[in-house]
Design a protein around this nucleic acid. Structure first.
Lengths: 210, 210
DNA sequence: ACCTGAACACCGTTCAAGT
DNA sequence: ACCTGAACACCGTTCAAGT
């Protein structure tokens, strides 16, 4: 190893390691082993594990691709939110890391621009357009963070088994017990985004374009 | 120390430690020091750090209190979502831990029951009621996870400074640049929940009750 | 200038030994 | 039966020393 270790090499090796083994199992020493380098050599490129992980998180945001616009206004809103969420989910292992990715990737900027455009189409202007798009954007981020947590909070069968024990206090749960199947994260997010889009459209100054 | 260390003591000390110092700084050895006990004694109560953290996460879900129902149907839906989210945010440091809290607290069950009831009020039945409530519930969980990440993804001023550099490709961002102030997480979530509620109401079989 | 080995102050957890 | 001390196999990071 002599001047041959670029920061990009470090980031991409770290990304591979995290995607393969998760964030918890990631360590500077393992990364050094994979790079066939002394652990301390990495510290010549990145001042700490934290700084390296931020670079990794930023790299993971760069590849967002938007689907071509098609369908009704509501369809387009839902598609956009889903694209954001899906991209974030793909790099979910790194999401927690985001404490300061000040610079945004071109992909994310494209999504922001598309979203603002959609809001403008139904008459949202200025701060209202920003506000409306933010609802969509942060819902997508939340869904991405939540993805994988599904089945560990209300909704899975095992939860309801317990709930039925407390059924005296919870008549509605009792009535709907048979309908609590497993959660399809993707389907659920799309229907949520659709409801959100309908709500945004209803409050918009203009009619929904056809 | 002789038979005097209850699992409850361990959980509540762990909770205090995590709330005060965050999950990253939490360790079994520090917990043992706070409890004035040998680190290994904790392992007689909980088989691993992971298992202990799950018990902590579950304990943190127990205290959810619902606000008294008031206002329009939409107001109530928004209030419910906000209550869930606020409670989760309060214990946000522990949220990541949830890999298997199979048993739900009474507080969460109450929220599920209230939500299903609200959906029934506008005519959602069976699986549709469950589906509609899930949109609300998981939005709240997502918002809770996201809370604190605000200002690190699109929306903060520093982001837009960068975005303006790429302005040729992003006309909508350019037009709205001055409206990207800091994000008020709480206000944003409430307006998101409101849009969601409007969307759910619009698709409901019945009229919104007054 | 660039890299490294040894060392420091931590981890979670195992296990043989103590009372 | 209940607890513990020493030990193992790890961490991130510092820093003096090597080339």
């Amino acid at each position: 190893m002599n001047g041959s270790l670029s920061p990009e090499q470090v980031v991409s090796a770290a990304r591979r390691l995290i995607t393969a083994g998760g964030l918890d199992a990631f360590s500077m020493r393992k990364l050094a082993a994979v790079l066939d380098v002394n652990p301390m050599t990495i510290y010549l490129r990145f001042e700490s594990k934290d700084v390296l992980l931020q670079a990794v998180a930023q790299a993971s945001l760069t590849g967002l691709r938007l689907p071509p616009p098609s369908g009704s206004w509501i369809d387009q809103v839902v598609d956009l939110a889903a694209a954001i969420k899906d991209h974030l989910v793909a790099d979910r292992a790194m999401l927690r890391v985001h404490s300061d990715p000040a610079r945004l990737s071109a992909g994310v900027l494209g999504a922001v621009d598309r979203g603002l455009g959609l809001m403008a189409e139904v008459g949202y202007e200025g701060a209202h357009a920003v506000e409306s798009f933010r609802q969509l954007f942060w819902s997508a981020v939340g869904a991405a963070l939540v993805d994988g947590t599904f089945d560990s909070l209300p909704g899975s069968r095992s939860d309801l088994t317990d709930a039925l024990a407390a059924v005296d206090d919870h008549p509605h749960i009792h009535d709907h017990a048979t309908h609590f199947g497993p959660v399809d994260a993707n389907r659920l997010f799309r229907s949520t985004a659709r409801s959100l889009a309908v709500g945004l459209a209803a409050a918009a100054p203009m009619e929904i374009p056809s």
